[in-house]
Simulated assay, not measured.
Amino acid sequence: MPRMQKQLFALSFGLAALIAATQVAHPEGIACGARAEIVAQLTDRYHETRRGIGIAANNAVLEVFASEESGTFSIVVTLPSGQSCLLASGAEYQPLREAPGKGI
């Protein structure tokens, strides 16, 4: 398996473990709901747009939203059940334009 695939697999596995652990330990700490409502709030409040998408463990869809204007970013995961959850958010978003194979 190529190195990049191994890294993505490990990241997906870690993300799945994070989702499971967080939902069991602190279900009230994660903002979950309909994807359309979460995306609307990210767009309206923070002017964030989708910057990346991928399939994580268990066919969950992981999306990264960000705004260069406000510098904010959010990571949203949508489970196969249709439920979406805001996993992380932060500030100081910096877009990167790295050549393939030149990343960390």
Rank of each mutant, 00 (worst) to 15 (best):
F13R: 00
G14V: 03
D44L: 12
H47Y: 15
M4W: 03
V24P: 02
E28K: 13
R97Y: 02
A16F: 08
F9T: 01
V76D: 02
L15A: 03
A88V: 12
E63P: 02
P2Q: 05
A21C: 13
L8T: 05
A99S: 06
A16T: 13
G101P: 12
A34M: 10
P27I: 08
F13M: 01
E98H: 09
Q83W: 06
Q41E: 12
Q94Y: 09
L79V: 06
E68A: 13
A31S: 13
S12F: 02
V77L: 02
L96V: 14
H47F: 15
S89Q: 13
G101Q: 14
E92H: 11
T22M: 09
S12Q: 05
L42G: 11
M4A: 03
V24C: 06
I55Q: 00
I104M: 11
I75Y: 12
G90M: 05
E37P: 05
R50Q: 15
G52S: 03
A36M: 09
I19R: 12
G52R: 04
T22D: 12
T78M: 01
G82I: 03
T72A: 15
V61C: 07
Q7T: 04
L11W: 07
Q7E: 03
A36Y: 11
G29M: 08
A88I: 08
E69W: 04
I104R: 10
E68P: 03
L15Y: 08
L8D: 02
T72I: 07
I38T: 07
A10N: 05
R51M: 09
L96Q: 15
A56K: 00
G82F: 11
V76L: 12
R45H: 06
E68I: 00
A25V: 09
L15T: 14
L8Y: 07
L42C: 11
V39E: 14
I30Q: 08
A40H: 09
F73M: 03
Q7C: 01
R51H: 09
I38F: 10
G29I: 08
Q83P: 01
S12W: 01
A36N: 09
A91F: 07
R3E: 00
A20C: 06
V64L: 15
A91V: 11
M1I: 05
F13D: 03
R3V: 05
A57L: 06
Y46T: 05
R45C: 01
A60W: 02
P95C: 15
C85V: 11
T72Y: 12
E63L: 04
Q94G: 04
I38C: 08
Q5W: 07
S74G: 01
E92Q: 15
A31I: 10
A88Y: 07
R3G: 00
A60T: 10
H26M: 14
